[in-house]
Design a protein around this nucleic acid. Structure first.
Length: 573
DNA sequence: ATAGGGTTAG
């Protein structure tokens, strides 16, 4: 229903008329006891766009349309309900907006609109109002979010001319802005010359050091800062998590005096990214109040770690608690469904997302939908979704290409890749992994080599072990085992299990026991607990009637305590 | 009555 209202505001030029029309309904939806409450109290109770509209009509009826303070609070509410268009419509009906009205609208715009529309709003403002120290932090925040170094830098020089660059809030915003844009030295200079600092400024600087890989300075600053709050601690935890140092992250987590839900979320996410779902789950269970973020981290964590049924279970648990899933949760859920590959489930989720979602044009959501449908076998639905996307992005192309490849139409994947290039979309490392895998699967050697070369020469992407695994697979399937082995040997970085696995699979396909043994011994060094690798070589021996070797492998497996998990080979194939 | 730092997604 949020969607319906939102659309209406988009299409009608004046939300105000809509509000007037809704005026008659106001007392029926707002509880009768509260209808006698002052409008200000209603504003603090307001949780939805619909009640906002009703309060608006009440403001009009009571002739409070130009009430300065009320307007501010109203605009603030529009902002928190993501109703930027409504906010603008109300704002431009204010007969003489003051600086606070402007700043509130500016803040709403910087949170909800593009940087360019926020900047143009700022320029309109400057025609009738001199911006003050409240105006700039949100502008800078928007620049930071868009990593717009040049826009932010020109704001900085404007601030200097206006003599506002010593303000605590503004200085902190600048420290954060330059830090996020990778300009550590600029950040440090601004931080060190600050007249006053508080926990926020210290934390912004620490985060800046972490984002730029300087863990020592981050730690030194944390130890030095006079007072810390929850965010300071969480920045430390997150910094170590991103650095891959879970041990130190956990130490900081344990030392933290009052952990909040973000501390847990950051730590849990760290465990999930490192593949340690048991530790993630342990912390998750200890958390008494779970918010949408932590649910999302767990659900997508299980999906990323190939435990889709756990994702599904958690989602249902959330569903039963009547927590409204957000976009990230839905994406995680769909990623899990894609792995489960159950058409009926995918159909349910597809329609559920359609009903649930207020993000109809979101490329992330569309891509996840495409991916899920493709992986669950409904290529027609995937193609329909793809074709109905307004703007197709890299991820949606990748989902389609992977889908076609899975359904044995790698030729279509190749077509799509070329079409994507024509549309001006820049492929990344993952896109090349997808297309190389497609070529491998279909035995398109020439195309595969073309893309591999394109990736290295035209896009300057250094091949990852995954890319090498695809190339090895490509050559191996075509029976070019020697060439494949040569590629493996020539890799500048150490091959991972997937590369050797591709070689092993090729050996199996072409019954080359000798090379298979070599590959297996390497794989065993890397992943000693994967029974599937042993099964592969045992199959090669069996194909060559080498039954003694087969039973030897079986005995070896037994002595190592390895058992093949039935039906799990597809993960590696 | 308005502003700054930390968390989710192929």
């Amino acid at each position: 229903m949020g969607l319906v209202l939102h659309r209406r505001y988009r299409s009608s030029s004046f939300a105000v008329t809509t509000a007037k029309a809704a005026a008659t309904a106001v007392y029926s939806v707002v509880p009768s006891s509260s209808s006698s409450l002052p409008v200000a109290s209603l504003l603090s109770l307001c949780r939805s766009l619909r009640s906002l509209e009703q309060i608006h009509s009440l403001i009009i009826r009571k002739g409070l349309e130009q009430h300065q303070v009320l307007l501010c609070r109203f605009l603030g509410l529009c902002s928190s309900l993501s109703a930027i268009i409504y906010a603008k419509e109300v704002f431009f009906r204010i007969s003489s907006p003051n600086i606070i009205h402007w700043n509130t609208l500016l803040s709403a715009s910087s949170n909800l609109s593009s940087l360019s529309s926020t900047i143009s709003l700022f320029n309109i403002m400057r025609c009738s109002q001199i911006p003050d120290h409240y105006s700039f932090p949100c502008l800078l925040k928007s620049c930071t979010a868009h990593l717009a170094l040049s826009v932010g830098a020109s704001l900085h020089s404007l601030l200097h001319r206006m003599d506002l660059d010593d303000d605590l809030y503004i200085r902190t915003s600048l420290v954060d802005f330059y830090g996020k844009c990778g300009q550590v030295d600029a950040s440090r200079k601004l931080f060190e010359t600050m007249l006053y600092r508080n926990e926020v400024s210290w934390t912004a600087m620490i985060d800046c050091y972490f984002n730029n890989g300087d863990y020592t300075s981050a730690r030194a600053l944390f130890d030095e800062m006079p007072e810390r709050n929850g965010v300071s601690w969480n920045v430390m935890i997150g910094g170590y998590v991103n650095a891959g140092d879970l041990i130190t992250a956990r130490e900081v987590f344990n030392m933290m005096p009052e952990r909040n839900v973000v501390s847990f979320t950051v730590m849990i996410d760290g465990y999930a990214k490192a593949g340690d779902m048991p530790s993630a789950r342990f912390l998750f269970e200890k958390l008494s109040t779970k918010d949408i973020f932590v649910w999302s981290v767990m659900i997508s964590g299980y999906a990323q770690n190939c435990q889709p049924s756990h994702s599904l279970k958690l989602f249902l648990e959330m569903y039963n608690l009547e927590i409204k899933p957000d976009q990230a949760v839905l994406v995680g859920l769909m990623s899990a469904c894609a792995q489960l590959g159950r058409v009926s489930l995918a159909k349910w989720v597809d329609s559920y997302v359609g009903k649930m979602s207020t993000y109809t044009d979101s490329p992330q959501l569309s891509s996840a939908l495409i991916d899920m449908n493709a992986k669950c076998g409904d290529m027609a639905r995937a193609a329909f979704l793809f074709d109905s996307m307004q703007i197709r992005d890299l991820v949606s192309y990748c989902s389609m290409m992977q889908g076609y490849s899975m359904h044995g139409s790698a030729g279509k994947s190749v077509e799509l890749f070329d079409q994507m290039l024509k549309e001006g979309i820049i492929p990344d490392d993952i896109a090349f992994t997808v297309i190389l895998a497609a070529c491998g699967q279909a035995g398109l050697i020439e195309e595969g080599n073309r893309f591999f070369k394109l990736m290295k020469d035209d896009y300057s992407i250094v091949p990852s072990p995954d890319h090498y695994a695809c190339i090895v697979d490509l050559l191996g399937r075509a029976g070019m085992l020697k060439e494949a082995y040569h590629i493996v040997r020539s890799m500048p970085i150490g091959p991972h299990a997937g590369v050797w696995g591709a070689l092993l699979a090729a050996c199996r396909m072409h019954s080359n026991a000798e090379l298979a043994e070599l590959a297996l011994s390497r794989i065993y060094e890397i992943e000693p607990h994967n029974a599937g690798n042993f099964v592969s070589i045992s199959n090669i021996y069996a194909a060559q009637n080498r039954w003694a070797d087969v039973s030897q492998i079986r005995m070896l497996m037994r002595s190592k305590g390895l058992r093949k998990i039935p039906g799990c080979t597809w993960i590696y194939s």
